[in-house]
Amino acid sequence: MIDHLALGAIDLLTSPGDLSSVIVEGLAKASLYLMIATGLTLIFGLMDVINFAHGAFTMYGAYIAAGLMLALVTAGMGFGTVMFIFIVVLALVFVLLAALGTVLEVTLVRRLYEYPPIYQILLTFGIAITLEQFMRMIVEFRNINNGQWNFDWASPRRQTLPSELGDAELLFIQFTNLQLFEIMLGALTAVGIWAFLNKTRYGLFVRAGVEDEEMAKALGINVQRTFTIVFAIGSGIAGAAGVILMWDPLWSTSVPLALDVLLPAFVIVIVGGLGSFKGTVVASLVVGMIDALGTWAFTTGVIQFTGIDELMIFTILVVTLILRPRGLFGVEGMGDHG
């Protein structure tokens, strides 16, 4: 077994084509993971709320985007037009999900800030169940009427993903342009959130709120409103991540997407350290790379276990928590009891 793995590793290191593909794929996966986890980390970092409805927001983003893209994109459109529509849909989904986040924060989440953290987990878990089942209702509603409205939710990807985002080759590196696009979006997210936190007035409020909520309040910062805005931005990013997942062939527009997104997002936030955006970026890279390695090992037959990527993700979680109980960049005391 060890020999087998060692041979596989030598194989990979001596083949620049394979190695570079794994790195590109790893970066693409890392970008997706970053987009999934960013909202969660922002919300937790400021508000100590572990948002279990996060995956449901992403799932809603994917469904809304699938519907909109299908309605707006027609067969003869050029690459530029499709990308323009995609960006518009991305923005629209961000706004819609941010609005949903705002409504939920103002009506429900806000009531529980004074309670122990477990009650926020419970509340958002309840919201998640409800949202997921509601989407299931809508999807199944289309299926009644003797299947007249039956709809294949994989079709938006097939029909609206431009062929320009397909396979490409540069020197010996093989990748898809979709992967490059994902890496670009991931980098934009990282830079955008960094700029938001470090260069804007609200970012300052957010950091102040994370540092010392009482003091921030005493200095006249409207922490309540900052909470609402961060919850809205976090939900919006979750939805926007769903838009790109709609195009990615490794994910699917389906109700279980909610849980498929939620669990890796948790892993990344915890591995990176609760409340640390830097940690989230690093953890996304680590998890993305290891995930890509696992996929490579499975497709080349080095490891013959179908669930390898999921297995790797949760193993990373457990091993990290054993070795570094606060995650990579975690702060002492955050997320503990009390």
Partner: peptide, 10 residues
């Protein structure tokens, strides 16, 4: 706290 919940979940 959260870390305990997450390691058992993992």
């Amino acid at each position: 706290g959260v870390y305990f919940a997450m390691i058992t979940l993992g």
